[in-house]
């Protein structure tokens, strides 16, 4: 498993944020295969396409045109097939209550978009690392919640 690259999707409408994310994830030690979509509708279409296979991690921005992150989260979690897909909310800071709501709806990780590139790099690295630990060390995925 360690040798195969992680399949990662980022759903993000902001071009700058996609740019930063791409740059940051490339510097992470863990090998990744990044796909980027512009909004929720594109994301769901991508996931429904059988040619694309199941991603390991989905990064979701909450505020997107056409279909928001929460809607995507609910749709993905409604499908049992995607049970073991790690969902990371990648959004601007929100209240603790809003963050808790995403966890209750099935998100595993909530990332408040950092304002420093180094921190972004660190955060992505941490997320992928912990995700890897959960996969390789047989940890209880039900308990997989992390707020960064």
């Amino acid at each position: 498993m360690a040798n195969k690259p992680l399949d990662i999707i980022l759903a993000e409408d902001d071009e700058d944020d996609r740019f930063f994310f791409k740059e940051a994830i490339e510097k992470v030690k863990i090998k990744t295969d990044l796909t980027m979509v512009n909004d929720g509708v594109e994301l769901m279409e991508y996931l429904k396409n059988p040619e694309n296979g199941k991603p390991h991690v989905v990064f979701l921005d909450l505020n997107m045109p056409r279909k928001g992150g929460i809607e995507c989260l609910e749709e993905i979690r409604a499908n049992k097939e995607y049970n073991d897909v790690t969902i990371v909310i990648y959004s601007t800071s929100a209240s603790d209550n809003d963050i808790e709501e995403t966890f209750v709806k099935g998100a595993n990780i909530y990332i408040r978009k950092p304002n420093d590139f180094k921190i972004l790099q660190k955060v992505i690295s941490e997320v992928l690392s912990i995700n890897w630990q959960y996969h390789t060390s047989g940890l209880n995925k039900e308990h997989f919640v992390l707020s960064i």
């Binding site: 603790d96 966890f103 209750v104 099935g106 308990h143 919640v145 960064i148």
Partner: peptide, 14 residues
Amino acid sequence: GLTPSSFQRIIKRR
């Protein structure tokens, strides 16, 4: 990133 109480609450709500 969570307190033990909010962790417990989240899982129970889930």
